[in-house]
């Protein structure tokens, strides 16, 4: 449903981005926090609401567009990146966002995710990772930990999980970040960086599902453990957390006690390193056990965007062309003959 407000100078508030639809996630769902953070972040884009489009697939997170007073499409399972690619390619005036989940993006839609990332379509992809299937009521997902007991794995899951950031980096993503549903300031800081990025921005948001996978990220949230578990990546800063630091080790990175390393050996974070190997090594610091979990922007590099290049070709070819006249010339091109 539309709202009559039309602003001359865009000074919108979070409430301007709320739609008239009742939000229907389970009580305590991490999606509420993400929605509130996104709604209060969107005014920062400085865009009129009609210039923003949210596209989602299927799953709990994919209800997201209904709750935003922007243009939105709740599409089909896994396919949001395809629809968003068509929209973003044909409409450079829009800010196009994809909201997806670990099942939607990494299972059924895995193919579209990797191709959107390698093409570097100007899309902001928010992957709400709760490491479980929520909407279908509790089966394991491609990010669930091995051995997980779920409705479909009563003896424990034997699937090896994806590391979503490693996957994104392997897909040639130009922007890769991770944040937490419960840390609004950090979430918005990451959204800001994603919005500023030209091209595909991939943001993994750890999100709690209180019904089927409650406290999956508790180690990153509880006051007792979080300082030892969360690695906050800051550009230009040595990577330290708690009493520990990240240092180079062989071909990768490793966590060591600060006491055991020289200050000069601590890796200084740099998200614009051209070689994705560094960001990949960062993404491997934590597995499903989350013991050392970097959050923040892992990688942010510039590469021409797919949609811009596609448009450029069309614009260059079509500049000043009278389509009707050109059609007449096309029809009459090559071998023709006239019957009198």
């Amino acid at each position: 449903m539309a709202d009559a407000v039309k602003l001359d100078a865009p000074k919108l508030k979070a409430k301007d981005f709320k739609s008239d639809q009742e939000v229907r996630w389970c009580p305590g769902c991490g999606d509420y926090a993400i929605l509130a953070a996104v709604q209060s972040f969107l005014p920062e884009l400085g865009l009129e609401r009609e210039k923003i489009a949210f596209v989602s697939g299927i799953g709990c997170s994919s209800r997201f567009p209904y709750y935003l007073n922007t243009y939105g499409m709740h599409s089909i399972h896994g396919r949001a990146p395809t629809i968003a690619t068509g929209l973003a390619t044909s409409r450079p005036d829009l800010s196009v966002w994809v909201v997806t989940g670990d099942g939607d993006a990494l299972s059924i839609g895995g193919n579209h995710l990797i191709h959107a990332l390698r093409r570097n379509v100007n899309l902001k992809i928010l992957l709400f990772n709760n490491r479980i299937y929520g909407l279908t009521k509790g089966q394991y997902s491609p990010t669930s930990e091995p051995g997980k007991l779920t409705k479909s794995t009563p003896m424990g899951s034997v699937d090896a999980p994806f590391n979503p950031l490693s996957l994104a980096l392997g897909s040639e993503a130009t922007f890769v970040a991770r944040t937490l549903d419960s840390d609004r300031a950090h979430l918005q800081q990451v959204l800001r960086a994603a919005a500023e990025h030209e091209g595909s921005a991939f943001v993994e948001i750890y999100q709690n599902c209180p019904i089927f996978n409650d406290n999956a990220f508790e180690v990153l949230k509880s006051a007792e453990t979080r300082d030892e578990a969360i690695i906050r990546l800051e550009n230009g800063q040595p990577i330290r957390f708690g009493d520990r630091a990240v240092v180079q080790s062989g071909y990768g990175l490793e966590v060591k006690d600060v006491a055991d390393v020289d200050e000069s050996d601590i890796v200084v974070h740099k998200s614009d390193v051209d070689d994705p190997a560094y960001a990949f090594a960062l993404s491997r610091l934590s597995g499903t056990e989350l013991d050392h979990t970097p959050i923040g922007v892992f990688r942010s590099v510039e590469r021409p965007t797919y949609d811009e290049q596609v448009r450029h070709q069309v614009e260059e070819a079509s500049a000043g062309v009278d389509r009707k006249g050109a059609l007449d010339r096309l029809l009459n091109s090559g071998d023709t003959w006239t019957v009198l």
Partner: peptide, 25 residues
């Protein structure tokens, strides 16, 4: 392309129709 025709060779058939639908939208 001079006719304002954009062609996208998608990663699969599903993406091809998805992109077309997104553009229609």
């Amino acid at each position: 392309k001079r006719f304002g025709v954009t062609t996208v060779q998608a990663e699969d058939e599903i993406a091809a129709v998805g992109a077309a639908l997104g553009a229609s939208w």
